[in-house]
């Protein structure tokens, strides 16, 4: 009985070490994986009402690394909060979800899960009627 407990513990410990050692973490405590995919899939712009201010969906050009979007008439582009979806395990820098001024194009970099591929997107938003 004692022996089987010992053996099970050793196996579990071994498995744990193997699993964890495969994926180190970065300075944001996110796993660095082996994924190479690196792109933005969805982009939205939230207003102070916490609703998407864009008309339709943003156009993401992954060949030229650009995003273009049109915001609703009357959107205050000086005070909006961008958010996006990316390929699995990617990170975005600078972080989205902060209040920013989008009256001029802004750049965000998507970095792959293995942190070896980067794509810097230029995001341009125009408000209707501007």
């Amino acid at each position: 009985m004692k022996n089987s407990i010992k053996i099970t513990s050793i196996i579990l410990l071994g498995l744990f070490m193997v699993t964890c050692s495969d994926y180190p973490i970065d300075d944001r405590n996110l796993l660095i994986t082996d994924k190479e995919a690196c792109s933005m899939t969805v982009f939205e712009l939230l207003g102070p009402d916490n609703r998407n201010s864009l008309i339709g969906t943003a156009v993401i050009d992954n060949d030229n690394n650009t995003v273009t979007a049109i915001a609703k008439f009357g959107t205050n582009l000086k005070h909006v909060k961008p958010r996006c979806s990316v390929e699995i395990d990617c990170i975005v820098t600078p972080m989205m979800g902060e209040w920013v001024d989008f009256t001029q194009p802004r750049q965000y970099t998507v970095i792959s899960g293995n942190r070896k591929i980067q794509k810097t997107y230029t995001i341009t938003v125009t408000a209707q009627g501007e």
Binding site: K72, F73, G74, N76, H79, W99
Partner: peptide, 9 residues
């Protein structure tokens, strides 16, 4: 401080 002076919709 960053707000507009109108709200629509």
């Amino acid at each position: 401080d960053q707000a507009y002076d109108f709200v629509l919709n």
